[in-house]
């Protein structure tokens, strides 16, 4: 069996007295798409944010290609420098896009290449142009985010992440802030990435995407990882009552 891209072991996270993640175990296989689904507040975004240590987990281990993230040894924090080095190879896409509004699309993508990877401006802009072309925005490179639709902004955000040539991409509800008619263009870019063998972890409410694109689906509820299975297993033969309830609610809400 191939080693995991991300190995999550017995991870716990507390917000004060609130137990947000409870002994979560999960293996993310390389080159595959893993979708995290579950009701709001179930901890799926928190878990995702622990993977690049934007959120600090309190106990347990998260290893990226075998290397522990956030801690030198359990309980002893990693230096900022080392953490930044690890984050370079982990791309992240946020629900709210989080583009930098004072920069054009191209500048948004080039910024990390220049300031983090240390590329020359010319080289960075060439790569930024390539990444933007890939997400179908060749004609919007000089636009500021304020002049773009949500779908376009999110595609710039994806370009910003892939331009850094990450080994792993994290998506935190990438389509939840979009108007329904703009969801497709973002999901298509994600499907292309998946077909190229990018390791992806996607927190999503798009059950269609999870069912058709994911290689494995993890269902979370109340900070617990309830089940990890193939999309087939989760959506068509869910064993756990909690998954059945979640899917029933989902179907009821989306039927008309």
């Amino acid at each position: 069996m191939q080693a995991s891209a991300v190995e999550i072991r017995k991870v716990n996270k507390y917000y004060g007295p609130f137990h947000a993640l409870k002994d979560v175990d999960l293996s993310i296989p390389p080159g595959k798409v893993t979708c995290l689904i579950g009701p709001s507040g179930s901890g799926k975004s928190t878990l995702l944010r622990c993977i690049n240590f934007l959120e600090e987990y309190d106990s347990g281990e998260i290893r990226i290609d075998g290397q522990l993230i956030g801690y030198e040894t359990p309980g002893r924090k990693m230096s900022g420098r080392k953490l930044r080095e690890m984050r370079r190879s982990i791309g992240m896409v946020f629900q709210q896009f989080n583009l930098w509004p004072h920069m054009t699309a191209k500048e948004n993508v080039a910024e990390g290449l220049i300031r983090v990877r240390g590329l020359s401006k010319a080289e960075a802009e060439t790569r930024a142009a390539e990444a933007l072309t890939k997400v179908g925005l060749a004609d919007k490179m000089e636009n500021h985010p304020s002049r773009m639709s949500g779908g376009q902004q999110q595609r710039v955000a994806i370009a910003r992440a892939i331009a850094m040539e990450p080994r792993l991409m994290l998506f935190d509800e990438p389509t939840s802030a979009l108007d329904p008619e703009l969801v497709g263009e973002v999901l298509n870019v994600m499907k292309t990435l998946a077909s190229e063998g990018m390791t992806m972890v996607v927190v999503t409410h798009e059950m269609g995407f999870a069912a058709h694109v994911a290689d494995q689906v993890a269902f979370m509820e109340k900070g617990e990882l309830v089940a990890v299975d193939s999309p087939q297993g989760i959506f068509h033969a869910p064993k756990d009552q909690r998954i059945q309830n979640f899917l029933r609610t989902y179907h009821e809400r989306n039927s008309f």
Partner: peptide, 12 residues
């Protein structure tokens, strides 16, 4: 989020 986006790509 805009600060986090910078941290996420490893910016100092």
């Amino acid at each position: 989020g805009q600060i986090e986006a910078a941290r996420a790509i490893g910016m100092a």
